[in-house]
Design a protein around this nucleic acid. Structure first.
Lengths: 125, 125
DNA sequence: TATTTATATGAGTAATTATTAATATCAGGT
DNA sequence: ACCTGATATTAATAATTACTCATATAAATA
């Protein structure tokens, strides 16, 4: 089954990293700025060792960079382009999640199929 | 801490859904076509009930649509635009993951900071 | 040198979720 | 009506990972 132009094996670990709510909150919280760890701890309400753990996972995955400034370590997004991608997904969700399978607002589903299935359950198994 | 233009709370559940490797493989395997469940089972090597479970999660999250055709249920991506977003992330990873924090190929990090921190560990705690 | 603050790591535990087994339900064919 | 194949659901178990606790390490300050 090969219909994605590329194997998904590369994006799989990236999505695993981003699939943790705490890490996504940390990432989005950084935004366009660099923040010291103490800031991130305060803003997220997570424990210090938990924040440190998630930052290490984000750093090793290449999503953030660390910069030491004196005794503080500042974390920044590796590239703010990542925010655009997250934003694109949010906009996609705005369109397709609300509509669900009941028909896209922006893109019409191809006609001519059998009558569109209701959700399988509703259709009876 | 508010630097993402939007709260991440909307994309968090979406990333949780996509953060499971099996579901990402199913999604990418669909690509531009609709596939019956039997196909997906075969292509992924996952158990039938496991595939059914993941398809339900993907459907409820709005990523795929189900269409019954006779006794077969075909699953399609809700919108192929999603593939573009996944592709964008892959390209971003191509640039930033390999480079890590050692400097972007495409985008220069602003100069003028303290000397760039090594990874924190290497810098000593 | 000692102390304080910042931050990382290892080990253990708690929580979450993927997977499997068993079974139910549905559509189509005989 | 019965049988077959397709597919969903429930419950139990296995696997993974988030979180906490304790502690180590590093930089700055006294």
């Amino acid at each position: 089954m090969r219909f994605f132009a590329h194997s998904p094996e590369q994006i799989i670990p990236a999505f695993k990293v981003l699939g943790e709510p705490s890490r996504l909150r940390i990432l989005c919280g950084l935004g366009l700025e660099c923040r010291p760890v103490t800031d991130i701890i305060q803003a997220t309400g997570l424990g210090q060792t938990n924040v440190s753990f998630h930052l290490r996972v984000l750093r090793e995955a290449g999503f953030v960079r660390a910069e030491r400034r004196g005794s503080f370590i500042y974390y920044c997004l590796a590239d703010t382009e990542l925010l655009r991608i997250l934003h694109d997904l949010k906009q996609w969700l705005d369109t397709y999640q609300t509509q669900g399978a009941s028909g896209a607002r922006k893109r019409r589903r191809p006609a001519g199929r059998h009558r569109a299935a209701a959700q399988p359950k509703e259709a009876g198994n």
